[in-house]
Design a protein around this nucleic acid. Structure first.
Lengths: 251, 251
DNA sequence: AAGTGGTCTAGACCACCGA
DNA sequence: CGGTGGTCTAGACCACTTT
């Protein structure tokens, strides 16, 4: 009867994940490229699908980065991305962090209209932005601004003109505070493209309501790459006790 | 030759997900149980694995809840879980929200020790807690408290005695502020059990550093169920513009 | 015992990237 | 073009819950 293991009912992919996780710490450097999936599967004596299940988990934890046509690389610790204060997220404060992609006037989604306290079909300024960090895209955002918040912006505009006018008005606005929430989501087709990920990639969705003069001045929905980002809400220094790494992000 | 669709290179599972998502809105009520995976796969003419890929995404978005041996049910909107203020997370403030599971003295992990400013092998009080909401477990936490923060707690204790002593000291502590970060993780074996999920389930990991008198008084690592929780950082009301639902959580 | 979701296999083809 | 990860199939068995 030999060595019939009473091992466990631990799934193979879970065990695999543990082994790979340790190997990443000891045998690989950040940015290094792993053997391809077919070879890894063969090496561990499992089907490719099982190996992929283990890699999926490690990618969800931010340990790996997979790129089609290229390979699987070892990821560095996640970037700390400040999201708590207007200095970081309100237009005009962070000079290079946010890049305006588009600005139009359109009816707000129902949930947004409710938060803004306006009619569901009332058009609002919608400002699409992309946030860069260390040369990489980390998040996209849609800012919804009711006309009442930016009274100085006239009705018609050429492309780009509206964006400048709205941004200028917002920068001089006095904010009283914000309310925020964070939840897990998946990237839609457009977000995925801007974030340089595949559709369906996990993202952290930050919903913010900006208050000014007792009313809701604007509402934003931001989606951050969950694989590379650690959202920080510090009022001074930065925490760094996460189990998923404790150093700076390498490029 | 007929209707050969030049449809798209949109993956089948993505299209399926869209169909199911719409069906959830129109044809199902919260808590209702879906047809089983084999039947759904047959109905849509795809392999079960493909159908499961679509369900995986919907589960990641919090639209579904799957329980082995039972079935797949339609999930309600996520619960808003306040995590920003000590009233909600610091011991003693929320009477029924947190339940202490265990309390021991042990060396802190390296990253925690560094954040606390102590030696890596110096023992600290570690307090394990479970957070309940609406009768459901929503998060687990480990609080690391250096001895210097609770000088009134003597050395040896019977089970449970230490917890009471530490908690009493913490409740009278004056806090200056906190630093927080949020990132995506996966539930470990123990966390999964307490959260009534399978290991590997996605969780939101909140790392907090509590400051008192210019020093770090304690550090906590909390893991919240990503499927049912929307973390809120409000300073007053609650935002509700998330794309993933806008009503209250049903049981 | 029956039915559910979870794991696993051994293939196949496709979309994308780089040389 | 060859090599990579992404998608998909048609099965099988397992772990769990309910009856």
């Amino acid at each position: 009867m030999g060595t019939t293991q009473l091992a466990a009912q631990e799934p193979k992919y879970w065990h695999l994940k543990t082994i790979l996780n340790d190997a990443l710490d000891s045998d690989f450097a950040v940015g290094e490229i792993l053997p391809n999936e077919r070879e890894l599967a063969a090496r561990f004596g499992v089907a490719r699908a099982t190996l992929r299940q283990a890699l999926d988990q490690l990618e969800l934890e931010g340990r790996l980065q997979r790129r089609r046509g290229v390979g699987t690389t070892v990821a560095g610790p996640r970037m700390g991305v400040p999201v708590a204060r207007p200095e970081h997220c309100w237009p005009g404060s962070a000079p290079d962090a946010w890049r305006t992609v588009e600005c139009a006037e359109a009816p707000a989604p129902a949930a947004v209209a409710e938060a803004l306290g306006i009619a569901a079909d009332e058009p609002v300024h919608t400002l699409r932005r992309l946030r860069m960090m260390h040369g990489q895209p980390v998040g996209t955002e849609i800012l919804y601004i009711p006309g009442a918040t930016v009274p100085g912006v006239p009705g018609f505009f050429a492309a780009g003109g509206r964006a400048r006018a709205v941004l200028r008005e917002l920068q001089s606005l006095e904010l009283d505070g914000e309310s925020r929430s964070v939840e897990l989501g998946v990237a839609g087709a457009e977000d995925a493209k801007q974030l340089e990920r595949l559709p369906g990639s996990p993202v952290l969705v930050v919903s913010t309501r900006y208050r000014s003069g007792g009313a809701t001045a604007a509402v934003s929905v931001s989606t951050y790459r969950a694989d590379t980002c650690r959202l920080t809400f510090d009022d001074s220094g930065s925490v760094d006790v996460s189990p998923y790494g404790s150093e700076r992000q390498a490029s």
